[in-house]
Design a protein around this nucleic acid. Structure first.
Lengths: 219, 219
DNA sequence: CACTTAACGCACTAACTAGTTACTTCTTTA
DNA sequence: TAAAGAAGTAACTAGTTAGTGCGTTAAGTG
């Protein structure tokens, strides 16, 4: 009996190994999910601590405040998508193929990372006050816009794209046709009386989006 | 002095005329603004009461709960846009003109009613649980989708539009290219290092959107 | 091994928040 | 005009919530 109690005690006060980086990472992961689910205002710090299997005190130790934690989560999310975009190596592809691949990537990234969309929505509700402070994001974004600009230029030079398409407008449009569909999937499914998240619906939308962008830029 | 005091007293406890409808309307208006600004979770009932120049008790008297109030605000918002769309009388216009007018209307409606976008975002954060309960909205939406379907059919019959365009996908796209630009105007202005809300930028985007939709459907 | 540093956790608080109780005042109508 | 009901209010409650004070325990260092 005494042995059983001892074992129970040991597993109760876990032989927790100290690891600052791992704890930080667990907090960030839990925070991303909680912020994405409930927004900055609706997220609960206690819930984040619990889900991270960490103590709430640690959140304030590592991240100072709820808002700073949100800012870190948001920055990480942007860095992640921009990094993934760079990895596509679109410069190595023919203009049309490159653009189609970007549309597909964007769609699939939003699908696989639904938190990204909700985080961005929440940030816009707060008038981008957290993103404003981040210089890293601005640099990464500039690189991205230039990449699309290069694709457009190459296509125009080859005569496959019409000239004069604004890369910013195009970027916004590529994001928009995927983002809107997914962020509004709940109200959309009611308004249009169709399950927008059914597999066929998702495949169909991707095709439609690629088609939309091609018709927009092709000569 | 006594007269002055009397006057002060009178204006202090205002000779409020009782008017249930007016009070309800003031609450709804204040609620729309507060929900749009802070989302369902971030909105404060006390703030709504204060802005409405009403007592908090009245909110619960007329609307039962914060959530029911939100639902009412949301329903009203949807009814308003659907009503405005019907008033466009697009059936009286040539297919191309009708579609261009719809794109322009959608853009301008979002611009003039920024609360609409934020309310819909908030509702999607809550997985459309409030909209699900509303039958009125479903009927109005069906009418709207059919309207766009008719325009497409007329255009295809006349040979100005290519056949087989899905009215639901088209509707989603028309909404998307305006909605995304505006809901993400804060992060967008940072990412793209451009004031997306400058007059010229707004005009330019409308032209781009009309162009995008025309290229998408024209034969 | 002693000692310092940093990770970790408990328990608290001050402020806030949705919703309510119990009341007063105005308006309508029998 | 008296009674009834509806409009309106102030003050309260019970539960939450972001953020902290302070003590404990593990790990690296001389």
């Amino acid at each position: 009996m005494s042995i059983t109690n001892e074992e129970a005690e040991k597993s109760a006060r876990k032989p927790r190994i100290r690891d600052a980086e791992a704890t930080k990472a667990r907090i960030l992961d839990a925070a991303k999910k909680e912020f994405a689910k409930n927004g900055l205002g609706g997220a609960r710090v206690d819930v984040i601590a619990e889900k991270a299997n960490a103590n709430k005190r640690m959140i304030y130790h590592y991240f100072e405040s709820k808002e700073r934690l949100f800012q870190t989560v948001l920055e990480d999310a942007y860095i992640d998508i921009r990094t993934a975009e760079q990895k596509l190596k679109l410069d190595d592809l023919e203009p049309k193929a490159a653009l189609a691949k970007l549309v597909q990537f964007t769609w699939e990234y939003y699908l696989k990372n639904p938190e990204f969309i909700t985080l961005v929505n929440s940030e816009n509700l707060h008038r981008a006050k957290h993103l404003k402070k981040s210089e890293v994001i601005k640099a990464a974004s500039r690189k991205f816009v230039n990449m699309v600009g290069d694709i457009l230029d190459r296509g125009a030079a080859q005569g496959v794209f019409r000239p004069g398409v604004d890369p910013v407008q195009l970027n916004i449009t590529i994001a928009a046709i995927g983002y809107y569909y997914l962020t509004n999937r709940f109200t959309g499914s009611i308004i249009f009386e169709r399950d927008l998240m059914a597999k066929e619906a998702i495949d169909e939308r991707l095709q439609f989006n690629v088609d939309t962008i091609m018709r927009l830029v092709c000569a």
